[in-house]
Design a protein around this nucleic acid. Structure first.
Length: 563
RNA sequence: UGGGGCGUCGCCAAGCGGUAAGGCACCGGGUUUUGAUCCCGGCAUCCGUAGGUUCGAAUCCUGCCGCCCCAGCCA
């Protein structure tokens, strides 16, 4: 039986709409898109949006999406980045086919096209200094002035360009410019530089080239050479589209991809620019590009986000042209949805306080059975050792609880999850610190595994760990990196001053149920009543887990201010 | 005050001349040995604003207002 693809009935975004139209009218037989990162930094959640768009379109139309490194500026780029980028795209679950592509693969062709531009009188070598070029460009409201080098002969331009290529000139002394219109209201069209001299070592072509093509010139031609049908980029390139089109039209190329722009992703409680992320890394405000608080793909991976959650997130937020700032809660919601289905349940006490069950036999250890998932029996069960001395969460006991609080307190009875019902007897407080050191209870032997034969109702169920059999674990509670929704809103305040000092709280006294000893690095579990925690892929070891909190559980008690 | 864009519920986002989808958030209620999950219900007489065209407009036209982007030999 043929499996019919479950096409969602949700409306197409404006880009997919354009593509559907192009396919329908026969303008294109299929789609070819591309994801073109510059290898000068790590990919972040904003890139993931673009990746999901471009590769998603390829999947939906049985088309192709190229991974192409836009490596035209050797002074900023590095192989380390090309490796991390490939890993991240792959991890997200996308496939770029045969091989990775590089703009630098096209340097010879790009050069030949530049020569052609010179030959048809559409490009010239300019010897204005960088500063002079800026002055000649004019301003937003005044037209620019033509360069004195603008009307050199074709022969002279060819000669000079060849000399640039041969490394005969110093950086900054000569550039190749497109001859368009110095009076254009679009500054990008005022004879843009298309080649500059750069004597840096290129990560792939080494010292072969002394001149490198600029983005605007490179991108459209690379798209064309790959037969890209739809070239998707962010809004700030809208003003560059006329230049994209000019190059392809002027060179009369065999195909002409359509550039379409969409709004980049912004999220609340974080910053997205590579520059700012780099500043946090270099200033040691975070541990590195893959710090679990970073919204980089590698940071999210370490935090415990799954590829599915990120792809669902991209689908949920959609594609549009209006600048937006998505609520971080939307991302968090996606990872909860995903992990809720697949994470095993476990118990871990983060801030332990000792409970002594006075009437429980000394030395007895009982094995209780816990479900790995409350709704999915197929996920199995595990054993939980129960003993006279236990730890419970300090939060789960109150000396003077309100009526709405249904955990442990004087006179209260609560259920220990998968354990017994226990009844409060007394508690001991340290005189000097004022902290509660132990709570005495009695248990009802008739209530093993948590239900009372007499049918009496117990409102609260709390988690616990055997004091004797518990496993000490290191837990890091991660929270949003910034304390304000938009760290960049106030121009007078440096975004670094808005960092959330509580974005990482390291807990060393936590105790988990013994099954946590088997946790594999990278594996994620739910600590019941608390949240999802991922064994750090780098620092966690079998038997000695280090857990990163991915996200808390939704909590309608805390969030309602515990009325 | 040059050019290019954008303005639909708190946050996203459908809508493409026929009388406001969906998600998140929020608010009720139910189930529940996670105050989780799940389930049910509520949530824009109104689409930046003022006019105009039309039997009829968020959708077409005009003016106005607000916000974003552009003066790298960065991408």
């Amino acid at each position: 039986m043929e499996i019919i693809e479950n096409k969602e009935t949700r409306p197409l975004d404006f880009i997919r709409q354009i593509i559907a139209d192009d396919l329908q009218t026969g303008k294109h037989q299929g789609t070819v898109t591309r994801f073109p990162p510059e290898p000068n930094g790590f990919l972040h959640i904003g890139h993931a949006k673009s990746i999901c768009l471009n590769f998603g379109i390829a999947e939906e139309n049985h088309g192709r999406c190229n991974l192409r490194f836009d490596d035209t500026n050797p002074s900023k780029e590095d192989v380390a980045y090309v490796e991390s980028i490939q890993k991240d795209v792959q991890w997200l679950g996308f496939d770029w086919g045969e091989k990775v592509l590089y703009a630098s693969d096209y340097f010879p062709q790009l050069h030949a096209y530049a020569v052609e531009l010179i030959q048809i009188g559409k490009a010239y070598v300019c010897q204005l200094l960088p500063d002079e070029i800026r002055q000649y460009r004019g301003t937003l409201t005044e037209p620019g002035k033509e360069s004195p080098y603008r009307n050199r002969s074709v022969a002279e331009n060819l000669q000079l360009f060849e000399q640039m290529k041969n490394g005969e000139f110093e950086e900054g002394t000569h550039v190749l410019r497109a001859k368009i219109d110095m009076a254009s209201p679009n500054l990008n069209m005022r004879d843009p530089v298309i080649y500059r001299i750069l004597k840096a070592h290129h990560h792939r072509t080494g010292a072969t080239w002394k001149i490198y093509p600029m983005y605007d010139y490179t991108h459209c031609l690379s798209d064309m050479l790959e037969g890209i049908t739809h070239s998707l980029c962010t809004l700030e390139f809208q003003d560059h589209r006329p230049l994209y089109d000019w190059v392809l039209d002027t060179l009369n190329t065999p195909c002409h991809p359509r550039q379409i722009e969409f709004a980049r992703l912004n999220l609340t409680y974080t910053v997205m620019s590579k520059r700012k992320l780099l500043k946090m890394v270099e200033g040691r405000y975070v541990e590195g590009w893959d710090d679990p608080r970073m919204l980089t793909i590698s940071g999210l991976r370490r935090r415990g986000y799954t590829p599915a959650s990120i792809r669902n997130f991209a689908r949920t937020i959609g594609i549009g042209k209006s600048e937006s700032r998505i609520d971080m809660g939307v991302l968090e919601n996606e990872i909860r949805n995903d992990l809720n289905l697949r994470a095993d349940r476990r118990m871990c006490v983060l801030d332990p306080v000792k409970v002594i069950i006075d009437n429980y036999p000394e030395g007895l250890i009982e094995e209780m059975v816990g479900k790995n998932h409350p709704q999915d029996p197929a996920m199995g069960e595990r054993m939980l050792p129960f003993s006279k001395e236990l730890y419970i969460e300090r939060d789960d006991f109150m000396e003077n609880p309100s009526k709405k609080y249904h955990r442990l307190g004087p006179g209260r009875e609560v259920r220990l999850r998968y354990g017994y019902l226990i009844q409060y007897v007394s508690h001991v407080t340290d005189e000097t610190t004022g902290k509660i050191t132990e709570i005495h209870c009695t248990y009802d032997p008739e209530t093993k595994s948590g239900s009372a034969p007499d049918g009496r109702k117990v409102k609260g169920t709390i988690h616990w760990v055997s004091a004797e059999k518990g496993l000490p674990v290191t837990v890091r509670l991660y929270d949003r990196l910034f304390k304000v929704e938009d760290p960049e809103a106030d121009k007078a305040v440096d975004f670094l001053e808005q960092l959330n000092p509580m974005s990482r709280v390291i807990i060393s006294g936590a105790v988990a149920e013994p099954s946590l000893a088997a946790l594999q690095p990278g594996e994620t579990v739910q600590f019941e009543r608390q949240g999802y925690f991922c064994a750090d892929p780098l620092e966690s070891k079998i038997g000695r887990p280090v857990l990163n909190r991915t996200v808390t559980l939704r909590d309608s008690w805390e969030s309602k201010g515990q009325l």
